[in-house]
Design a protein around this nucleic acid. Structure first.
Lengths: 230, 230
DNA sequence: TATTCCCGGATTGTATACGATTTTCGCCTC
DNA sequence: GAGGCGAAAATCGTATACAATCCGGGAATA
């Protein structure tokens, strides 16, 4: 569930999701140019559809459209990085709290499977997929909280976090992640709302503190290889 | 500043703003069909631009696009109404608090002028404009809080509130509004952050409690008359 | 009269054509 | 070799054409 906003346009939605997933899995890096013809060729659609998808992504702030110059994968500034995590702390303490009071055994089971899969992906060296799954964990909690409006914001912020991590994450200890998620899961399962809230706060503070918020190095790459085409 | 998300498309942006303002001022009612040709004719642009604008508005959840059926001004459900005000309470307590610590004399002066204009519009019987200005007051506070990420969310929520009010507001005492705004202003001016926070909370709770959250009556109308065309 | 079916008009979905703008790159000058 | 200039190529912005879909109304039937 790598959801962006609601598009009516089914094909445009598919393209947007494809690009978003690639961004979440760090196959597309911040700053990369998204040429309309090229994207269209990759997904087998016309520029009309591609433009619709790019507009969708720009609303989610995953993409920046520069007039007459084209669309680029967004490069969140240091300031934006802080803002995103601050907003997440504000919103996700709420979702964690609410999810703890509402979580059903099925929800817990789902989250467990999520963590397992995240672990497996990480052990298999599929760091991109692991990263995406780790974001999905937060989105799942927002869904359980049963507040669609806030959940939509969280989805957006998690997506942007993925770009922030791509830009500012330089250390390699990605393991702490799943420990924090496991602790959160336990709190949710025991319906300890206040504890879940605190765990979420410290988890997000941890994440932010692990970032190296200095000017990022450039990391260009090719669009086609992100989608494994010749 | 009736801002929606960032569109590159300048013309599409203008159309989106025009429609959004009309929604804020209750000239376009929830459920109204937004025919692409008709909108295009009103703004003097082709359907390409209109579609872009409608997509923008659908991301802001001011418009719902039903595949193969067209775009309609959104009709927030009772549940959505509660969710929006709950999210606003969460986000705007933060913006109020932060704005109170940061507000400069210029900010205060701007807010004062805002309230005055709101008053004037209300006294002049321009309830639509008064309504929009009252929303802008909240957006201005979010701007002063200097947290662009949260401010963008607040803008969206304020815009949706306008639809909610159009649907569920049945009493006629719109006066309480500006009293609450005035009290808030005083707290901001005195840098009483905690007080500003509490005032904001109770203001939003008040607003929600003044709504009649029962199934709304239909209120159809014509698109062209919303823009005063023959 | 109520119901179903089918067709024509209206409206949306998508591709494509063409003008506008930017980018690239060879060439000239200094 | 650096820098500036200009034309060609690449790319984006918008309108329009055509296909796909939906909607409403009238005829046929029971």
């Amino acid at each position: 569930m790598t959801g962006i906003g609601i598009t009516s346009n089914q094909r445009g939605r598919n393209v947007a999701e494809g690009l978003a997933t690639a961004i979440h899995e760090h196959r597309l890096s911040p700053g990369m140019k998204l040429n309309e013809d090229e994207v269209g060729e990759i997904f087998g659609v016309s520029r009309t559809i591609v433009r619709s998808a790019l507009q969708t992504l720009s609303h989610a702030q995953l993409v920046v459209i520069e007039p007459n110059r084209g669309a680029f994968v967004a490069r969140p500034s240091i300031r934006e990085a802080r803002e995103v995590f601050e907003a997440r702390a504000l919103l996700e303490t709420r979702t964690a709290h609410s999810a703890a009071t509402r979580a059903t055994p099925e929800d817990i089971a789902l989250l467990k499977r999520h963590i397992d899969e995240e672990h497996r992906a990480f052990d298999a060296g599929e760091t991109g997929r692991a990263l995406r799954l780790s974001g999905d964990f937060h989105i799942e909690i927002a869904r359980i909280a049963n507040q669609a409006t806030i959940a939509a914001f969280v989805r957006q912020l998690v997506a942007r976090s993925s770009l922030i991590i791509a830009l500012y994450w330089r250390r390699r200890q990605a393991t702490c992640e799943s420990h924090a998620h496991h602790a959160l899961l336990k709190a949710l399962e025991a319906h300890e709302a206040d504890r879940a809230k605190e765990l979420m706060t410290s988890h997000l503070v941890d994440l932010l503190s692990l970032l190296d918020l200095t000017e990022p190095t450039d990391a260009p790459a090719s669009l086609k290889e992100a989608f494994r085409l010749p």
